[in-house]
Measured scan of single mutants.
Amino acid sequence: MTYRVRIENADGEVVTIEISADELREKGLTLEELLPPNARIVEVEEVEP
């Protein structure tokens, strides 16, 4: 499974990243732990691999 994640950074700019569930598991991280300081998740969407 892959996630498309929209993130708002500290400057108010919204960027989109895609990350797979396998990648998260391998790194032992959650989506929140990948965020840079002062950023927030705006939207998470599951996409087909």
Rank of each mutant, 00 (worst) to 15 (best):
residue 45 E to N: 07
residue 17 I to H: 03
residue 37 P to N: 07
residue 45 E to W: 13
residue 3 Y to H: 02
residue 33 E to P: 00
residue 36 P to A: 05
residue 29 L to E: 03
residue 20 S to L: 07
residue 4 R to W: 04
residue 30 T to C: 05
residue 25 R to E: 10
residue 22 D to E: 12
residue 47 V to C: 05
residue 47 V to S: 05
residue 39 A to N: 08
residue 36 P to I: 03
residue 42 V to K: 05
residue 8 E to F: 06
residue 35 L to W: 02
residue 14 V to Y: 13
residue 48 E to H: 15
residue 28 G to E: 05
residue 44 V to Q: 02
residue 17 I to R: 02
residue 9 N to D: 08
residue 43 E to H: 14
residue 48 E to N: 14
residue 42 V to E: 04
residue 23 E to D: 10
residue 16 T to R: 04
residue 47 V to Q: 05
residue 19 I to P: 00
residue 22 D to T: 13
residue 23 E to G: 03
residue 35 L to V: 12
residue 17 I to L: 13
residue 20 S to P: 08
residue 20 S to I: 04
residue 19 I to C: 05
residue 23 E to C: 08
residue 7 I to K: 00
residue 17 I to Y: 10
residue 21 A to T: 08
residue 36 P to K: 02
residue 47 V to A: 03
residue 5 V to A: 02
residue 36 P to L: 04
residue 44 V to M: 06
residue 44 V to W: 09
residue 49 P to L: 14
residue 12 G to D: 02
residue 14 V to K: 08
residue 8 E to Y: 07
residue 27 K to C: 05
residue 43 E to D: 14
residue 30 T to M: 06
residue 41 I to W: 05
residue 11 D to S: 11
residue 24 L to N: 01
residue 25 R to A: 10
residue 27 K to L: 08
residue 27 K to I: 06
residue 25 R to T: 10
residue 46 E to P: 06
residue 10 A to G: 11
residue 39 A to L: 09
residue 24 L to W: 04
residue 28 G to D: 06
residue 13 E to S: 15
residue 26 E to W: 10
residue 42 V to D: 02
residue 17 I to P: 00
residue 27 K to V: 05
residue 10 A to Y: 11
residue 10 A to T: 10
residue 17 I to T: 02
residue 12 G to N: 05
residue 37 P to I: 07
residue 17 I to G: 00
residue 29 L to C: 11
residue 47 V to D: 03
residue 47 V to T: 05
residue 33 E to Y: 04
residue 26 E to A: 10
residue 48 E to A: 14
residue 12 G to F: 04
residue 40 R to F: 14
residue 3 Y to Q: 01
residue 49 P to T: 13
residue 39 A to R: 04
residue 30 T to F: 04
residue 2 T to L: 14
residue 18 E to G: 02
residue 7 I to A: 04
residue 18 E to F: 15
residue 34 L to Q: 03
residue 18 E to R: 06
residue 6 R to S: 10
residue 34 L to I: 12
residue 4 R to L: 08
residue 41 I to N: 02
residue 22 D to K: 12
